[in-house]
Amino acid sequence: MSAADNKGSQIAAAMRQTGYRRLILGFDHHEESRTVLSIAEHVAATGQIELAGIFVEDTELFELAALPFSTEFMIKTRRRQSFDLPCVERELRTHMLASHAALQQMARRAHRSFSFRTVRGRLLRTLMQEASAGDLIMLRRADKPWHTTAIVGGHSVHAPVLQVLPPAVDEAAPLAVLGQQIAQELGRPLIRLTGSTAEIVETTAREVGAALIILPLELLSEKPWQDELELFAERVPSTVLIAGIPAQRRLDSDMSKDYSPA
């Protein structure tokens, strides 16, 4: 087992210990969103974790497409084209199918069952709405391996785990324990922020080169975060793990209509 595999299993072990049973993976029209599969595979293969993929069709895109002057600037070709509804639907479908195929392949390799749904909404909000007790949400925007070092101030450092805790949470709380165990297992320093805003978390994450940001679901449900949620999701450069309420018992297997066994 490689070092990366080992870390994945450790994360899985930490997750089981703290009562989390299902991993919701968030995909959208960002190509980098599929990079979450690389860490998710390790977790899924080594832990008894179920997988649920949710592709979120950002409603803002539809609204933008409906405006009369919308123009899309293509990154790769630097062309510009009219951004209309058929265009949005076509492009979103392409990303959705790619995400589904990628998750299917990963689940096959990891010998895990998975589910996959498409929902229209805003990314983080939708994922949070889909989560229930025992679920962890994971999404990603980074374009480099999650386990490598970070360049901070021109120096190579071990990318830390950045954990954000709600105010007045004690260290025995499952979320705190999860963060500590994950950091310990990864051999990374743990940086804790308490009650921070999205901007602060994003800025801190960039500065320290955080490999993983662990956020509490309840914090994200609060007003300051709600205003910044989708922007945060769009801009954050790390893997984001959102922890909800841990499960007290095993979850039912009836998750969604798109059940695809491994």
Binding site: L61, E63, L64, L67, E72, I75, K76, F83
Partner: peptide, 23 residues
């Protein structure tokens, strides 16, 4: 705004993209 294939500019109100009927 990041679109599926690139970038677009969108008018916003209250942090949200302006809906067509609002516009």
């Amino acid at each position: 705004v990041r679109t599926p294939a690139g970038i677009a500019l969108a008018p916003v109100r209250d942090g949200e993209v302006l809906k067509p009927d609002t516009f």
